[in-house]
Amino acid sequence: MPDRIHRPYFDFSEELNFFWTSLILLLFVSMVTFLRYVFLNSLITCWTPAQFEFQHNVYTHQECWNQDRVMVDGFDNLMPDHEFRPNSFNDKTFHRWIPIVLVFMMLAFQIPRAFKIMTDLLLGIPTAMVREDIGTNSRADRAQELADTIKEAGERNRVIRTMIFFLVKILVGLNIIIQISFVKWYFRDSVQIIGRDNETLVTPVHMFPKTIRCHFEIRQVQNVHEYLVQCKMPVNYLLEQFLFIFWFWLLGVGIYTGLVFITQLASLIIPPFVRLRFRGIIPDKYLSQRGFCFDDALLYLWDVEHSSGLSMAREVAVKLWNPPPLVQPGIGAHNPHMVQNPVHNEAVCSYNPQSIPMRTLDSGGTSSQPLLDPRLNKT
């Protein structure tokens, strides 16, 4: 069975942020939009005068739905009904704009993903560029091809991919923090201070009023009839409950994403956690020598494990850190300094090529002192 080439998400935290959270917002906005244009009376229900005909009722519901400023029940003691006019109504409703706000929240979750896709297009995904040809390439050949590709990418990009990986995680975390704060502090009841005739009124502002009073006018020839009708807002029940539940969803996703980020950061940088994460994949000899550093090789190897499985990652790691013989055959007798760099990859942070005994070219034996390459002695 062919190996899986590449996953659209590096881990489940990215899938939660980029796919599932965006899908939840999209489904809810689609549902509210469908209810709005198919079942209008289920989103707002107004009590109309008895003389209203069907067209009057439709107009009343449409007009009251589209109003931004309304009177909320409970303020009867502040101002008589006959003094209420559209420019003096003391509360706003946001039922028309909340679905649009949710769409922008959904798009905000796609910003880190867009940055990730853009960098992948610019730098490429080396481990995804290697395809498995079942008819010609063996598993060992593909492992060698992956190892060579990772070495080449490591020499070219060094630590750029790892830094971009962490930057994407930071963008995801910032987006969650901002969205949690936005839902918590914006979609809540508050108070406002109104000055009128040298009097100061402190009135509550309901983000999701359930009962409102709607003022509108109907002109017939030269006669203008004013109406103040009472309306129920079932849609605000729906919006309030969704945002309440969605805040806890964001909180859970944020905690999980933070834990995953801390674990990944430690697994790619801090030596004890690197040894714990890559034990059984990278040869123990290399893990024991690794210091406090980070490089793209670990991230590429991690990606191979995600995309092609643990066994393939082990084979690639063996070929990365157990290189071929150091002497190029047929050249040593003429040029004693022509030796092959054991791991020609700057990504190997703690590797010291002078600490490994090399075979001398004059006697054919093994010297206790390494054969030094002038290029390696440069300080």
Rank of each mutant, 00 (worst) to 15 (best):
I5W: 04
R7N: 13
P8S: 10
P8T: 10
P8N: 10
P8E: 08
P8H: 08
Y9F: 15
Y9C: 10
F10M: 07
D11P: 10
E14W: 02
E14N: 09
E15V: 06
F18E: 08
F18C: 08
T21A: 15
T21D: 07
S22V: 04
L25H: 05
L26N: 10
L26R: 07
L27G: 08
F28D: 02
F28A: 11
F28P: 01
F28Y: 14
S30P: 02
M31T: 11
M31E: 04
V32N: 04
T33S: 14
T33Y: 13
F34C: 07
L35Q: 05
L35I: 02
L35R: 02
Y37A: 03
V38L: 09
F39W: 06
F39T: 06
L40C: 00
N41D: 07
T45R: 03
T45H: 04
C46E: 03
C46T: 06
W47C: 08
W47M: 08
A50H: 08
A50F: 11
E53H: 09
E53F: 07
Q55K: 14
H56L: 02
H56F: 03
N57Q: 11
V58F: 09
Y59V: 06
T60Y: 01
H61C: 00
Q62W: 05
E63H: 06
E63Q: 09
E63T: 13
N66M: 05
N66G: 11
Q67M: 08
D68K: 01
D68C: 01
R69V: 04
V70R: 01
V70L: 03
M71Y: 04
M71F: 08
M71P: 01
V72N: 03
D73G: 09
G74T: 11
G74R: 08
G74W: 05
F75Q: 12
F75D: 11
F75I: 12
D76C: 10
N77T: 15
N77Y: 15
L78G: 10
L78E: 15
L78F: 15
D81H: 13
D81Y: 14
H82L: 15
E83S: 13
E83G: 07
R85Q: 12
P86T: 07
N87R: 09
N87Y: 12
F89W: 02
F89A: 05
D91I: 00
K92M: 05
T93G: 00
F94H: 10
R96D: 03
R96K: 13
W97P: 00
W97D: 03
P99K: 05
I100A: 10
V103L: 14
M105P: 01
M106R: 05
L107Y: 08
F109M: 11
F109G: 02
I111F: 11
I111E: 10
R113S: 05
R113D: 07
A114V: 10
